[in-house]
């Protein structure tokens, strides 16, 4: 539990903005701006935040589906950023991803069998018969019927398609799975089926998850630790229970207070943030949250707060806590 399988160090992803007559770089969208965290073996680290906070970019950068601008991604002691394409391709056997919209990430012209067999072929696993056996086994693992093996993605419901996406990720026996909003497109009753499946699989195969989501209720359910992102930076990182019961960062507090709770008798103080998230191409100086923060101090507009440990592995980047 304590051993870090993945260390992300000062990860940055800047997208250049081109403009002017000469089509020069006139600025950068700082999608991820210096994010560092560790993921322990067998845990579920959730990254939460609103649109544009850089949670998905972080997730994809770890697999190098997006090439990071700067920083190191150390997986089992090896810096993934230093690998060439061929080495990285082989390494992806250990790192897999599940996407939000299973319809967009499954080839509509391939049968389930082919979809699930492809990763095995790519990574040279087994011969034809072994692969076929493996595909049937995978389908059963994720709760699908082996009679459905010749079907195409459109013949499945949303929840079933997400199961296929999970089966595909599992096919190469990965160690770490990045799940990018895996249940956001699903109805509540289907969502809980998929969440339970993910928990079962984690236990069965000793998987480590990075669970990216905007839904704080889902995250409370599935995560071991939670990192909160705002405008490309990690503002708070703590054990799940600690984060939900004792949120320290003003942004985390506002975020948690904004989530509707399905209980008409539930009362709490609601912190309504004014305004919108500033543009990541021109983020505010100092603490990026200061434009919407109700505790804003002078120092917040000037100095960027570091992410510091305030005890119990509770990290926070805020001038109020140092």
């Amino acid at each position: 539990m304590t051993e870090a399988i993945l260390k992300v160090e000062k990860l940055k992803k800047y997208y250049p903005i081109y403009g002017g007559v000469l089509h020069k770089t006139i600025g950068y969208v700082k999608a991820v701006d210096g994010v560092s965290f560790e993921v322990n073996q067998g845990e579920t680290l959730a990254l939460v935040g609103e649109s544009g906070c850089g949670k998905s970019t972080t997730g994809r950068s770890i697999l190098r589906l997006i090439e990071p601008t700067e920083g190191r991604i150390i997986f089992e002691g090896e810096d993934l950023v230093s690998l060439n394409d061929e080495q990285m391709r082989k390494r992806r056997r250990d790192l897999q991803i599940i996407f939000q919209d299973p319809f967009a990430s499954l080839n509509p012209r391939h049968t389930v069998q082919r979809i699930l067999e492809e990763p095995l072929i790519v990574h040279g696993i087994g011969d034809k018969n072994e692969r076929k056996r493996k595909v049937v086994e995978l389908l059963e693992t994720v709760g699908l019927n082996k009679e459905q093996i010749k079907r195409y993605p459109h013949q499945f419901s949303g929840g079933q398609r997400q199961r296929i996406g999970i089966a595909r990720a599992l096919s190469v026996n990965p160690k770490l799975i990045v799940a990018d909003e895996p249940v956001s497109a699903l109805d509540v009753s289907i969502q809980s089926q998929v969440l339970n499946l993910m928990e079962d699989l984690q236990e069965k195969f000793g998987l480590t998850y990075i669970f990216i989501s905007h839904d704080l209720s889902v995250v409370r359910h599935i995560a071991s630790r939670v990192g909160v992102m705002y405008l490309g930076s990690l503002v708070e990182l703590a054990d799940k229970t600690e984060l939900y019961d004792q949120p320290l960062h003003p942004y985390t507090q506002a975020l948690l207070s904004a989530v509707p709770v399905p209980d008409p008798d539930f009362k709490r103080e609601r912190i309504i943030l004014s305004g919108d998230v500033p543009s990541p191409s021109n983020p505010p100086a100092g603490c990026k949250f200061h434009t919407r923060c109700r505790y804003k101090m002078d120092v917040c507009t000037k100095e960027v707060p570091d992410l510091v440990d305030v005890g119990n592995g509770h990290y926070i980047a805020c001038h109020l806590h140092r």
């Binding site: 509540v188 969502q191 809980s192 409370r220 359910h221 709770v261 399905p262």
Partner: peptide
């Protein structure tokens, strides 16, 4: 089956 912000119950009903 709705996950809640206020509870950590391990297994969701589905």
């Amino acid at each position: 089956s709705t996950p809640r912000l206020t509870s950590e119950k391990q297994r969701l009903y589905s």
